[in-house]
Design a protein around this nucleic acid. Structure first.
Length: 384
DNA sequence: TAAGGTTTTCCTGTTT
DNA sequence: CAAACAGGAAAACCTT
């Protein structure tokens, strides 16, 4: 299965970055380091930020993986509905933190259910953000919040003039950099790709599930990406890809080698983005972190639910998984567990029967029903 | 640090 | 036959 996934984005300058295909990133780094001492210093910092020392077993390439982005619901925005420093800065110049604060501001302001957002969408800088269309934002953040973000972004953009000079690099310097990059690793410069400085290699293929050929949540999302708009949230497809790869490998190895029961040790998160976000993490466990709440929230936000699940009987709380593996992948993302499957998710669902969070629905595959100990899904509670 | 709750993982067997 | 369903067992992880 041949696929190209973006390993990371190396920032040469706040407004100048380079996407590195995953399978090439270490050699790219080495060659690039030799190409320019000064730039290698910049790269050093960039790579250190980009590739924290966390280890992930599902990374089959030789690259050091990017730190996983936490889910938005796991952090507490410190905005208190006040504007952050982003308000005083051209969106083109926003750092990742600025973008996060900006999203946080609007999440708070619109009282949006943060548990429905994925931090992968929020982990981008201003340059990336500014390339996004209204449609892209609405796809990523839902109709309401997406529109609000788009509106806010456009007004912020309008407040500041933008042109190439803001990179601080002249045209000739940009050309020079491009030349350096191309001379350093021409092999990543395929015929279909433009100049390296504009190079974005989007994952070429997404493995499909046996039962459901389309994960619309992901497919629509990825298919709408323009090369320019992909920066910064490749981790979604990356985790998706790697999880499937891991499942594939796991299934193979299961045949040759049995392991003990129970959950194997989870790779430790150490530094990097995870660490950065720690300071924003709530001291208390965020509510809405249980599986049944996650499922409920998908169901009661149809605008965020791209055909993943549907109500079979809205009033009685009967629902059905339409894309079981896709939901499992999403759940896995929320829990930072890229090897989640519907089989495992469903085991957790079955535990809910005894606690009467769910009721059994016999004879209907992929159909469940909320029980008396679940809340927040009833029409009286949701208003629709 | 310990305990308890909630998954997660794996497995065997059954049903659709 | 494949995919789901059922639960037991045990480990991991998180909150209190």
């Amino acid at each position: 299965m041949e696929s190209l996934a973006v390993s990371g984005i190396v920032y040469l300058h706040p407004n100048l970055f380079m996407c590195i295909p995953r399978h090439l990133s270490s050699s790219v780094y080495q060659e690039f380091s030799m190409a320019s001492t000064d730039l290698s210093l910049i790269l050093n910092n960039a790579i250190a930020n980009l590739y924290p020392s966390e280890s992930q077993p599902n990374m089959l390439s030789t690259t050091v993986p990017m730190g996983r982005s936490p889910h938005l619901s796991e952090i507490t925005f410190n905005s208190n509905s006040t504007m952050g420093s982003w308000d005083q800065v051209n969106p083109q110049m926003w750092t990742r933190q600025n973008v996060l604060e900006w999203i946080g501001f609007h999440v708070e302001e619109s009282r949006f259910d943060a548990s429905l957002l994925n931090m992968n969408y929020c982990d981008m800088d201003g340059v990336t953000l500014c390339t996004m269309s209204k449609e892209t934002l609405m796809n990523m953040f839902g109709l309401v919040l997406g529109e609000q973000l788009h509106h806010s972004l456009e007004s912020q953009k309008a407040r500041y003039a933008t042109d190439l000079s803001e990179t601080g690099l002249s045209e000739s310097e940009l050309d020079l950099l491009d030349n350096i990059l191309q001379n350093s690793f021409p092999y990543i410069h395929g015929p279909s790709l433009g100049p390296l400085l504009e190079t974005v290699v989007v994952q070429a293929s997404i493995p499909t599930d046996n039962t459901e050929n389309t994960y619309s949540y992901f497919d629509e999302y990825t298919s709408q990406l323009t090369p320019e708009s992909d920066h910064g949230y490749d981790s979604l497809t990356e985790s998706f890809q790697s999880s499937n790869t891991e499942n594939f490998v796991k299934q193979e190895s299961v045949e040759t080698k049995k392991r003990g029961r129970g959950r194997p040790p989870k790779p430790r998160d150490s530094e990097g983005y995870e660490h950065f976000i720690q300071s924003k993490k709530s001291k208390h466990a965020p509510r809405g972190t249980h599986l049944w709440e996650f499922i409920r929230d998908i169901l009661i936000h149809p605008e965020q639910n791209q055909g993943l699940m549907k109500w079979e009987d809205r009033r009685d709380g009967v629902f059905k998984f339409l894309k079981s593996e896709a939901v499992a992948q999403l759940w896995g993302q929320k829990k930072k567990n890229s090897s989640m499957t519907y089989e495992k998710l469903s085991r957790a669902m079955r535990y809910y029967y005894k606690r009467e969070i769910l009721e059994r629905v016999d004879g209907r595959r992929l159909v469940y029903k909320f029980g008396k100990n679940s809340t927040g899904w009833r029409i009286e509670e949701t208003g629709y």
